[in-house]
Simulated scan of single mutants.
Amino acid sequence: MASTSSGRQTGPRDRDSEGRARNARPRDGLGRPLPYGSEGVARQPEGVVRAPAQTVAEAQDLLDAGRPFHAHEVFEDAWKSGPEEERGLWRGLAQLAVGLTHAARGNVTGGARLLRRGAGAVTEWAASEAGRQRPYDMDLTGLAQWARHLAEDVERTGTPVDSQVWSPRLRG
């Protein structure tokens, strides 16, 4: 494998069975890439179409295990494959999971910003006609409160959080 003048490795890119670029590097529980050959955690398969209840359950299991980055990937699949009228919901939930990921990695500014953005998206969706029905038994108001509280705590302390301790409850 050759390297560029900046020292970056060049060469064949990881590809999936359909030829799309995929990064096959192992990752840790917070989604950080590890060196090739390292032992990482199992990755969530991309592009999986799940029923909404399955999405919520799988994401909750990952959040409970302290793996918010991987929960974000589950929400992202729902965002990309779900009905147009639900995309704001799933995108907001993905932003909450990524915000928790950044907060756990110690990225205070990015974590707080994404938590607030996700809280805003979830709150906006909850105010919509579809959102008033408590979709998939999720407590959207409680999630938005959790995210805003965590954003404040992260900014106040300036220290990484334990993603397992701060795992939100999707269903109230």
Rank of each mutant, 00 (worst) to 15 (best):
Pro12Ile: 03
Pro12Ser: 05
Asp14Gln: 07
Arg15Thr: 13
Asp16Arg: 01
Ser17Tyr: 05
Ser17Glu: 06
Glu18Thr: 15
Arg20His: 12
Arg20Asn: 12
Arg20Ile: 02
Arg22Ile: 12
Ala24His: 08
Arg25Met: 04
Pro26Asp: 04
Asp28Cys: 02
Leu30Arg: 03
Gly31Gln: 03
Arg32Thr: 11
Arg32Glu: 14
Pro33Trp: 08
Leu34Tyr: 04
Gly37His: 04
Ser38Ile: 08
Ser38Ala: 15
Ser38Phe: 04
Val41Phe: 06
Arg43Asp: 03
Pro45Gly: 09
Glu46Met: 05
Glu46Cys: 08
Val48Pro: 03
Val48Met: 05
Val49Phe: 09
Ala51Thr: 12
Pro52Trp: 13
Ala53Met: 00
Gln54Phe: 10
Gln54Met: 10
Ala57Asn: 06
Ala57Glu: 15
Gln60Arg: 02
Asp61Phe: 07
Asp61Cys: 09
Asp61Ala: 15
Asp61Pro: 02
Leu63His: 03
Leu63Ile: 08
Leu63Thr: 04
Asp64Ile: 14
Ala65Tyr: 13
Ala65Met: 07
Pro68Val: 05
Glu73Arg: 00
Glu73Phe: 05
Val74Pro: 09
Val74Gly: 12
Asp77Pro: 14
Asp77Tyr: 12
Ala78Cys: 11
Ala78Gly: 12
Trp79Arg: 13
Lys80Ser: 10
Ser81Met: 13
Pro83Gly: 15
Pro83Asn: 13
Glu84Ala: 15
Glu86Ile: 00
Glu86Tyr: 08
Leu89Lys: 12
Leu89Gly: 05
Trp90Tyr: 15
Trp90Pro: 06
Arg91Leu: 13
Ala94His: 06
Ala97Gly: 04
Val98Met: 04
Gly99Pro: 14
Gly99Phe: 15
Leu100His: 06
Leu100Asn: 11
Leu100Lys: 07
Leu100Trp: 04
Leu100Cys: 09
Leu100Phe: 03
Thr101Lys: 07
Ala104Val: 07
Gly106Pro: 08
Asn107Arg: 06
Val108Gly: 10
Val108Gln: 06
Thr109Ala: 13
Gly110Trp: 13
Gly111Arg: 09
Ala112His: 01
Arg113Pro: 02
Leu114Asp: 00
Leu115Gly: 02
Leu115Ile: 14
Leu115His: 06
Arg117Pro: 01
Arg117Trp: 03
Arg117Asn: 02
Gly118Ile: 01
Gly118Gln: 08
Ala119Ile: 06
Ala119Leu: 08
Gly120Lys: 03
Gly120Arg: 10
Thr123Ala: 11
Thr123Phe: 04
Glu124Pro: 01
Trp125Glu: 03
Ala126His: 07
Ala127Cys: 02
Glu129Thr: 11
Ala130Thr: 12
Gly131Phe: 06
Gly131Ser: 02
Arg132Leu: 09
Arg132Gln: 15
Gln133Asn: 08
Gln133Glu: 14
Gln133Trp: 03
Pro135Asn: 10
Pro135His: 06
Asp137His: 04
Met138Glu: 02
Met138Asn: 00
Asp139Ser: 14
Leu140Cys: 03
Leu143Asn: 11
Ala144Leu: 02
Ala144Met: 09
Trp146Lys: 13
Trp146Thr: 11
Ala147Leu: 00
Leu150Glu: 14
Glu152Met: 02
Glu152Gly: 10
Glu152Ile: 01
Asp153Ser: 15
Asp153Glu: 13
Val154Trp: 09
Glu155Gln: 14
Glu155Arg: 01
Arg156Cys: 05
Arg156Ser: 12
Gly158Pro: 07
Gly158Cys: 05
Thr159Arg: 06
